[in-house]
Design a protein around this nucleic acid. Structure first.
Length: 307
DNA sequence: GCATGTCAAGTTGTG
DNA sequence: CACAACTTGACATGC
């Protein structure tokens, strides 16, 4: 089992900067680009530090912050790498990051935020989403990240029509996006059972989030969901990807959806142990939570053959 | 200095 | 019907 860290660190001295469109708008274009250049340069240097920390800690996957290059696709203040004073340096660093990740077998992924919705009935929402995905696919190609994972989006009163809209948009996506796109079951709308037919038919890898499955059950057992989603990954020659988290207030609490600082060991599905797969750990204590879970598995000799 | 509210974008469920 | 949640730091504002 390969463990993944999501975006940020608790104790490692790695951080990512951002800026807002409002703050940028008050500057002339030249100063905007200088400011953005500094932020992007810092972020790329920190991404390399992040991967070095991940490698040192024995973590095998890393989810990259979507706004690594903040506001890059914004309609007013958007920009390209070539526009930035440090653009060439940044391009160099990106190449170094790809080599480091590839050389140390660190799997990289992206997880665009909630504004990326391909099933929306509103054309402008879909258009903005495709633009954002195109940016992330370019970044994925440059960095060697093979996965851009999104949710199926809104229901709009009828899941089947929403999924049909998704299917049509999906077929028209640029290759670089379509080759990386994966779908994940969410905690309110789309379950594994909802997504399986679409994913099987279009060969879209399905990221199985067991926490969302527990919050939003669909009649499938965890073993069934693991096997059925795993079959799609296997048929495409890819290592299966799953998500794991624990509820902040426990399973008896008011709302089980907010994530806890650490993973409760009993929340790791039994059938995942010994399985060849990547598991992103979604926990507030970040790398500390990943390391703690890996230590637990190692102490109990539950890590499978790969370790 | 420090505390606080806002920030591009969508959708759902709660109050 | 308005608003928080999803998530985090940067920035502007006001004391």
């Amino acid at each position: 089992m390969r463990m993944g860290l999501c975006c940020l660190f608790k104790e490692e001295n790695v951080s990512f900067r951002t800026t807002t469109a409002t703050a940028l708008s008050s500057l002339p274009r030249g100063e905007q680009l200088i400011k953005l250049s500094g932020i992007c340069h810092d972020n790329v240097r920190n991404l390399l530090l992040a991967l070095k920390a991940v490698q040192r800690l024995g973590i095998g996957a890393f989810r990259i912050m979507s706004p690594l290059f903040p506001r890059m696709t914004h309609p007013q203040v958007g920009y390209e790498l070539a526009d930035l004073p440090a653009g060439e340096d940044i391009r160099h660093l990106l190449e170094g990051i790809r080599n480091f990740a590839g050389g140390h077998d660190i799997r990289l992924s992206f997880h665009p935020d909630q504004f990326v919705v391909l099933s929306s009935p509103h054309p402008h929402v879909v258009a903005n989403s495709v633009r954002e995905l195109t940016y992330q696919a370019w970044l994925g190609k440059t960095l060697g990240a093979d996965l851009i994972n999104i949710h199926a989006g809104g229901v709009y009163g009828d899941k089947l029509s929403a999924l049909e809209r998704f299917r049509q948009v999906f077929s028209d996506l640029p290759d670089a996006v379509r080759n990386r796109l994966t779908l994940e079951n969410d905690d309110v709308s789309y379950t594994v059972r909802d997504l399986l037919p679409l994913c099987q038919k279009l060969s879209i890898p399905l990221v199985y989030d067991v926490h969302h499955h527990r919050c939003n059950p669909d009649g499938l057992s965890q073993e069934e969901a693991t096997e059925l989603t795993g079959e799609i990954w296997r048929s495409m020659g890819l290592e299966q990807y799953c998500h794991l988290s624990s509820p902040r207030a426990g399973w008896g609490g008011k709302d089980p959806r907010p994530h806890a600082d650490y993973i409760a060991e009993k929340d790791l599905p039994f059938c995942w142990r010994e399985r060849v797969m990547t598991v992103d750990i979604e926990a507030k204590a970040k790398e500390l939570a990943v390391v703690r879970l890996m230590d637990h598995l190692r102490e109990n000799d539950l890590f499978g053959g790969a370790d």
